[in-house]
């Protein structure tokens, strides 16, 4: 549905400085009906990427294809027509204050030249779809943050686009409203089969609704794939953020190691991990950790406390034993290291 091919965007030097390379050779493919997250720090180029997708920025080099149309090559009326196939949702919704909720939702249809009757019918459908019944005649100033974003989403969907682009749609919302809005976006994908690109700096958003995720750093893609692939790759930069690290333990008189697993055939569950550890120390206990099942596969980031056999006093295991265990874990694709409290 979306294909980016060597997309590069260079902004001219701001008075005398070096030109800013906001996007540097981005190759990306988004399949129809997927929810694709694009994550990255502030300044990574996320907004520039989405602006290239809508033709608001012209790429310096490369191809931008949305729904089979080469957006970057279009101008004038053809570009305006192509934009009507793309819905857009913004961080602060960008609703017009001069319009009521219903008038904002129907705005894309007004621009496309739909009749008043068509517009009213479609707006009524959309109001119901996003759960805004009774708020149609309110202006944005009379709505809550969550309601404003619902209007923004309904407006994005009004012209029945094939693609919905969301730039930080929940960053201005509180956690519970964020969950409601994310659930709404996921529901809409199920019901309408729409392709969604969602830009965010919050990993919780990715964990909650994305099928695929791409990490952008300094204008380049540093990791991209399905949520499972990315989360299960303990060496990749995203897994640490998707599956948070357990806190460093206090008051445990044992040797403590952190283990990240998920992409190994010989070590598939936390039980496998404990069993292996017990071959090297009498007692291995999971003291903290996050275990998630993504796509039917277990991905974990756990902390093991290790104690020698029959130890009377509290103590850890020997250095030699520990080195052996860490070596064996590494052979099985587990990223493991000792934690010093």
């Amino acid at each position: 549905m979306i294909t980016l091919d060597g997309l590069t965007k260079v902004f001219p030097a701001p008075d005398g400085g070096d030109p800013v390379v906001a996007l540097d050779g981005i190759d990306l493919h988004v399949e129809p009906g997927r929810i694709h997250g694009i994550v990255g720090r502030s300044g990574a180029g996320k907004s520039t990427l989405i602006r290239c997708l809508t033709g608001l920025e012209k790429p310096t080099r490369g191809r931008v294809e949305v729904g089979g149309t080469d957006i970057a090559s279009l101008e004038g009326a053809a570009l305006r027509a192509a934009r009507r196939n793309i819905g857009m949702v913004f961080q602060h919704a960008n609703l017009l204050d001069s319009r009521t909720a219903a008038q904002n939702i129907g705005h894309p249809l007004e621009i496309a030249g739909a009749s008043r009757a068509q517009r009213e019918q479609r707006v009524a459908e959309l109001v119901e779809l996003v759960g805004l019944q009774g708020r149609e005649r309110n202006h944005p100033a009379q709505l809550s943050g969550g309601q404003i974003q619902r209007v923004g989403i309904a407006r994005g969907l009004a012209a029945e686009p094939k693609v919905l682009l969301c730039d930080e749609p929940t960053s201005a919302l509180d956690p519970s409203t964020t969950r409601q809005i994310l659930r709404l976006i996921r529901d809409l994908r199920e019901r309408l089969g729409i392709t969604v690109v969602i830009i965010t700096h919050e990993m919780s958003v990715v964990r909650e609704i994305c099928d695929d995720v791409t990490l952008l750093e300094n204008g380049r893609i540093t990791q991209s794939g399905s949520l499972l692939e990315v989360a299960a790759d303990p060496h990749g930069p995203l897994s640490a953020e998707l599956i948070p690290l357990p806190p460093v333990p206090t008051g445990i008189d044992a040797t403590v190691i952190n283990c990240d697993y998920g992409d190994s055939e010989t070590l598939r569950t936390s039980e496998d991990l404990v069993r292996l550890a017990e071959q090297h120390a009498a007692e291995a206990t999971i003291v903290a950790g996050t275990i998630e099942t993504i796509g039917g596969r277990q991905v974990g980031r756990v902390q093991l406390a290790l104690r020698p056999i029959g130890a009377e006093a509290a103590s850890g295991i020997g250095r030699e034993q520990l080195a052996q265990l860490l070596g064996e874990l590494e052979d099985r694709g587990v990223v493991a290291r000792e934690v010093v409290a």
Binding site: L56, R83, M88, L95, L96, H107, P108, I111
Partner: peptide
């Protein structure tokens, strides 16, 4: 706000 409406075509 202006860009949002530009993006509607």
């Amino acid at each position: 706000k202006i860009e949002a409406v530009q993006m509607m075509g």
